[in-house]
Computed example of a mutant assay.
Amino acid sequence: MKHQQIKALVQVADCGSIRAAARSMHISQSALTRAMRELEEDVGAELLNRSYRGVSFTPAGKALLSRARLILSTLERAREEVRQISGGAGATVTLGITPVLGVTALPDVYKQFAQVMPEAELVLKEGLLTEIIPDLIEGELDFGIGITSQEQLPTELSYTPLCALESRIFGRAGHPLAKARDWSDLQDARWILNLTGGSPGDLLLRWLYAQGLPRPSRIVRCYSPMLMLEMMRRTDLIGFGPGRLIDDPLAGVGVETFAVQPQPPAGSVGIVRMRGMPLTPAAQMMVTLIQRAITSGYGDELANAPPELDEG
C-alpha cells in the first residue's frame, strides 16, 4: 500500500470522480485508475463501484477511506512535529470543543497559548461529541473536549476526564412550566434534544427510564448547540445542557433553569483523542494549558450545583 495510492483514494472521494481526482493530483486519468487497481489488488477487495454515472465506494472502500484519511493526517502531523522540533514555523493545533468551555476556560487558555506559541495557528471547531468523534477518527482533529465517558466511545479513542459537569433542564425565561416540580408535568411538553448515542439528550432519556420517570414524548432533534439555545429562547421548547452555560451572563440570556426534581446527576467533561497516537508539541502544550485551567478553578465552576430556586 503506497502513499500515492492512499492519496488517490481520498482524492476520488473528495472530488467525486476519477477524472476530477486526477486533475487535482496533476496526473493522467489512466495513471490514477492504475493506482486504484493496484490498491484493490493489494487489499484483496473491490473499493469502487464504477458505472456510467461515476464512482461510488463499496463497503470495503468506505472502511479503507476512513483509515486512509487518518494515515494522511498522521503523516502530515509527523512532518509538522519534525518542523516544530527543528525550530521551523507552521505549528497548527486543531481541536473540537464543547460550547461550555467557550464561556469558561477557553478564553484564558487561548491567551496563554498565544503567549507561549505566538506563531502557532489555532483551529477551533465547536461541536458536540457526535461531531468530534468522526473528525478524530478521520484525523481531522488533534484532540477533542467533550461530555462523555470511556464506555460511550469507540475502542480506538481514549478519554481522560477533566472534571464533573453539572447539567440542568431549562427553557425560556418565564416559561409556563419553569416552576413545575414533577416530571409528569413536563412529559407532554415539546423538547429539543440531541438524541445521538452518548449525547446529553440520549443520557437524559436513559436516566429517566432507569429512574422510572416519565420521558418526553414530543422531541425536536437538534445537533447544533447554538440553534438549541436560540429555539429555547424564542419558543416553549425545553432542553437539557450544562448549568454553567445557562448561568453565563451572555450565553444564558433569556433562559432559566427549571425547578423539576430530581435533576439528572452530573456528567463528565474530558479530553478525547486517538489511542496510541502522539500529540505534536503544540497540541500537547494546549492540552497542558487546558488541564491547568481546569485544576486551577474552572473545574469547580463547571461542577457547581444549581442555585436554590424561589418556589414563589
Rank of each mutant, 00 (worst) to 15 (best):
E121L: 11
L193Y: 03
T288R: 14
Q150M: 07
E41Y: 10
L95S: 03
G276Q: 13
T148W: 06
G201M: 04
T148A: 10
D236K: 14
L101K: 05
A35S: 08
T98D: 10
A180K: 10
A305S: 14
P264R: 04
M25F: 02
W183F: 08
L9G: 05
T155E: 14
L124F: 11
K125H: 14
I192A: 06
L153I: 09
A91K: 03
L136C: 03
R168G: 01
R244L: 08
E131P: 00
Q152S: 09
V82D: 10
A60S: 14
E140M: 08
P216I: 04
G267L: 14
R77L: 09
L65V: 11
G61M: 02
G144V: 03
V43P: 01
I137M: 09
A259F: 05
S217N: 07
E140Q: 11
S17L: 07
P176H: 02
S296T: 04
V12E: 02
E311L: 15
P214Y: 02
V109S: 03
L141P: 00
Q284Y: 00
T155C: 07
E230V: 06
W183P: 02
N49V: 14
I27V: 15
L101G: 03
D182Q: 15
S296P: 01
I192K: 00
C222P: 00
S167R: 15
A259C: 04
V10K: 04
M286G: 00
P216C: 08
D14G: 09
E138G: 03
A282R: 01
S17R: 07
L124A: 08
Q4G: 01
L128S: 12
T288Q: 14
